[in-house]
Design a protein around this nucleic acid. Structure first.
Lengths: 214, 214
DNA sequence: GGCTAGGATGTTGTTCAACAATCCTCAAGG
DNA sequence: CCTTGAGGATTGTTGAACAACATCCTAGCC
């Protein structure tokens, strides 16, 4: 309860953006939103800064803030950094506390359950949770928050895809494979598998994305 | 010149902090600073948000903003994430564009020159530039900015050390060794060397840091 | 003496209204 | 077709005011 008004505002807007109520490209008008949410323009601007911080919105000077529209090169870059953080997690797996390793296994299992139910949004969430858990093996708060921001940005990119519904499903078996390799202590092979995985996923996304506007 | 007033303010404050004019722990009073810098309190608060974003200052609700005082566990965590980003750069070195590899070599050389001159602040800058160049081999804007933030935060930690003057100098020979391994294409050994390097540097810093306050 | 309750004081959090600076639109003119 | 220039709309910034909160000091109690 010790959160500031601006922080609560940012959370509310973040929720709207991730749900898709504010699709990429939308302008967030200061006057309209401040009236809508019942706060002053100044406070709303503070909330905007927080959203800029997790790169969900983009601030153009003298023009306003817009929900970001990640382009193909953004996705490519996100996957580069994901590769750095997740492979670091795999390399750290050998000395990671058991609780963190359990989190990896749990995420894979939950993704499989969701797929059995045909609950594709839940599959997406669990898939991302699996990769967050991989990076989490670093046992580093900074890695964790960086990873969270990357995945939030990626979720935004999914919103621009034509049909993201069953995107994650074919990758579940590869998630399980990586988890097995980790459990068996074959870290080098796990890292190679993960790298190949990320490369394929990135390619698949970039290919189905609309062209970048000039 | 298309920068906002808040951005200019943030840059000015960032410079003061990194120079040490605002040592870690200092409270940044809104009223005093707004009078001093000739801007409104609201604008100053916007600048604060930008500084929070590169984690140079810390915002405590209803208490104000303070220049961060990184503790030993902060340093440990920074080195964890540095390890992830820099080793990723080393692994990407094989396919990195020549310009990025040149940047690595240049940084090492400049560090050696500065050491010959006994210019320890310049040695520190060049040392950090070398590691920034390593991470830069990823050719990823997001990795670059993440690395920049990490190093800025680390510079803050140096300010709390008793005598950071010649800290970087003994590491220069190891920088050169890593650079040589990269040039010879021995990426695996370069990565191992780098990991050992980071571990030693971290230990050295943490051991000379004052105790964390409870 | 030591401890708690309560008020005094200063700081931050938020709002409001106004004006300046900038961008966008659209129509007039070459 | 292109340029140019109002005009309108939005953001950028300010200053003042009040509310909410933290800290410190003091008075009172055990």
């Amino acid at each position: 309860m010790t959160r500031s008004t601006a922080q609560r505002l940012a959370a509310a807007l973040r929720e709207r953006i991730e749900r898709g109520a504010l699709p990429p490209g939308t302008q967030l008008s200061e006057e309209a939103l401040s009236l809508d949410l019942g706060v002053s323009r100044n406070t709303l601007r503070e909330a905007f800064r927080l959203l800029v911080h997790d790169s969900l919105v983009e601030h153009q000077v003298n023009r306003g803030v817009f929900v970001r529209v990640p382009g193909p090169d953004d996705v490519t870059d996100i996957y580069r950094m994901r590769g750095a953080l997740e492979t670091a997690g795999v390399r750290a797996a050998e000395h990671a506390p058991p609780a963190l390793l359990d989190a990896v296994t749990t995420a894979v299992t939950e993704a499989e359950w969701a797929a059995d139910d045909g609950d594709w949004p839940a599959v997406a969430t669990a898939d991302l949770a699996f990769h967050r858990a991989l990076a989490g093996l670093c046992a580093s708060p900074r890695v964790d928050t960086a990873m969270d921001r990357l995945l939030a940005e990626l979720r935004l990119a999914f919103h621009t895809m034509p049909s993201p519904r069953r995107f994650h499903e074919p990758f579940l078996v590869r998630n399980r494979a990586i988890e097995q390799l980790l459990a068996k202590g074959e870290y080098t092979r796990a890292e190679a598998e993960l790298t190949a995985y990320l490369d394929d996923a990135r390619r698949l996304i970039v290919d189905t994305m609309p062209e970048e506007r000039p």
